[in-house]
Design a protein around this nucleic acid. Structure first.
Lengths: 349, 349
DNA sequence: GTCACCCGTGGGACCGCTCCCACGCGGCAT
DNA sequence: ATGCCGCGTGGGAGCGGTCCCACGGGTGAC
């Protein structure tokens, strides 16, 4: 390697950006005053403020986040943790919409969004340490499982945390969720209203609260209509297309005369459609079908799927605002917010 | 407000985390040595190293990022910029898969991923300043439009930048893209191989490079087969379902005898299917159809859509690695990487 | 035995900001 | 006039790291 090829002492092109000091010098005031202007303190005379503001945009000054964080012990950023195992979920509008809401809710507060995909278990396990090391001011978690203890550990470490959905009906942490049982109830009531009586359901994994809540809604609708719940009409899926198909097959085997199905997710409903078609049954003529999520597949299934919509973007926005509250004042405690769902009627029921 | 209700001097629960100094004291060495151990310098004796390592995990020490950034002028984080106007895109696997790849590629290097959704024009305009203010070490941009100048500004500001896709065939910046023309060519060759001869195409907006590249591939396949390209068989869409449907209608009007269509996206293909069905034409018997993207809708369209798959996750991973290279050594210049596509044959062609 | 060298090490200076203390000055009550 | 108050202000200290310089003690060459 010839001398000319040796790395230069400081090859970095970082033309040193102006500092607080530079602004202060140019405006003819002290650092303190500039800092006060930047942070919107009222204790600055109009004259100084004007001078500082002018200097700021003549210099194109932007505060150095690292320097600020170092002293304030805040980072003005929050992490959004997504267990990457849930890859199928991530492709659904579910994540994108919530992320959009979160981002919108955060942007107003000048907060940054750190996206953390936890690839595997070991990585996930390190997360508590990682996140609590003054890296973020708060954490948003999606797709938490019932037995996940990471949220609790974060809570112990005094890291403000808000979940999308709850782990159980005694969730101690702050969280935002859709009215899953209410949505399911309305879906089933819709089927009842169209005269269906032998209504089955394809549930999600029952160790997940969403799955249990949607099943509860199904039961509730039947009970309110004065119908007995036949356990033969309840088949467990796993939120995948294949699982939905298998559950549908099981339902048809157990109860060939069934005339409607409420699937706890659109993806499972799409599997159910395949099975119904394979069995020579028509949707909705022979078997009516309602899904949940109103995901992109709902519109493209043949026939287009009636489904329960969750206000995803609003959920994201609400998560952001709950988290900001917890960050601003640890005293607010852990709040839970439930947002209403909406039945979107298409052709499958 | 009674005294008891006054905010406490320091309500913050941040139990001061151990610092470098604490570790040094416990290990009985100087700060310099601890720093060297942490940064893997070889100039540390085995004995000191062991002592420091023990102290580190007894104390549960984690370095303070802000303090480090302040002096190194690096943030160890990169921004992923997604223009939020593209909401339809964001719900596609396109984004999720690329993000997953990016995240995987970054995690290995200990880099954080900052997700930046640019809601509107004004916000987007501020981004150059924002991103260049020593906030991130590099920027990844998705869905850049032909007339977007943000990448150029970032480049001028010496912010390493890598794009997903290129703005034109003279893209000066580093970027990663799929072999769009090659993929399109293979798709059309597949149609030719099944004996179709009157093959139309539904393009994307021709001010986008992907759209032009896919159209080029279409032309190339026909030319290679010795067929003339009939401009009547080219209809322009806009990557939406409705646009695809309108383009299909136009094609049928201009050329009722056509027996195959290559749509430059699955979503447009799904619109085309609706129009074909409405015209009483069967897929693939009357008109064969191939899409592009192999998105989630491809599998759920009736009939399941033959489509061109892009290696999305790999694209993300490649973007990350290009960016890391640019960050590590600005001298590498702007590299362009093209990744191969793959035809996924289903029932529509 | 002396000297030059190298290796591992400690610690000062500094990164750019916020926090807070002390100070000067004008206005108002005495 | 004299004192006091409070506002706006400047600037020192310090946040927790990295960088680098100087230094002590061993080692090998002469």
């Amino acid at each position: 390697m010839s001398p000319a090829e040796l790395p230069q002492p400081h090859r970095t092109a970082d033309v040193r950006r102006p500092t607080l000091n530079a602004v202060a010098a140019r405006a003819g005031v002290g650092r303190g005053t500039v800092s006060r202007v930047i942070n919107g303190s009222p204790k600055v005379s109009a004259r100084s403020r004007a001078a500082v503001e002018q200097a700021i945009d003549e210099l194109g000054y932007v505060p150095n986040r690292a320097a600020r964080s170092l002293v304030t012990r805040r980072t003005d950023s929050v992490a959004l943790v997504v267990p990457d195992a849930e890859n199928r979920l991530f492709s659904e509008p579910y994540f994108s919409e919530i992320i959009r809401g979160v981002s919108a809710g955060l942007a107003g507060a000048g907060m940054q969004l750190l996206l953390v995909l936890a690839r595997d278990e070991s990585e996930y396990a390190r997360l508590a340490t990682y996140l609590s090391a003054q890296r973020v001011d708060g954490v948003l978690m999606m797709a938490v499982h019932s037995d996940d203890t990471l949220p609790d550990r974060l809570d112990e470490l005094a890291v403000p945390t808000v979940l999308a959905g709850r782990r159980s009906d005694t969730e101690p942490l702050g969280h935002v969720r859709a009215d899953n049982s209410g949505g399911a109830r309305v879906a089933v009531e819709h089927l009842l209203a169209s005269g269906r009586r032998a209504i089955g359901t394809i549930t999600g994994p029952l160790d997940m609260d969403v799955a249990r809540a949607r099943l509860d809604g199904y039961r509730e609708a039947l009970e309110r209509a004065g119908l007995a719940v036949d356990e033969d009409l309840v088949a467990t899926g796993d939120f995948t297309e294949e699982g939905g198909r298998a559950a549908m097959r099981e339902l048809l085997r157990r109860h060939p005369g069934l005339d409607a199905v409420f699937a706890a997710s659109d993806v499972m409903a799409s599997g159910a459609v395949l099975e119904l078609r394979a069995s020579g049954l028509r949707v909705p003529q022979d078997v009516a079908l309602v899904g949940f999520d109103d995901s992109i597949v709902a519109r493209h299934i043949d026939p287009p799927l009636t489904s329960v919509r969750q206000p995803l973007e609003e959920m994201g926005r609400t998560m952001a605002s709950l988290l900001l509250d917890e960050i601003a004042d640890r005293g607010t405690g852990h709040r839970a917010v439930v947002l209403p769902t909406e039945l979107v009627v298409r052709e499958s029921a």
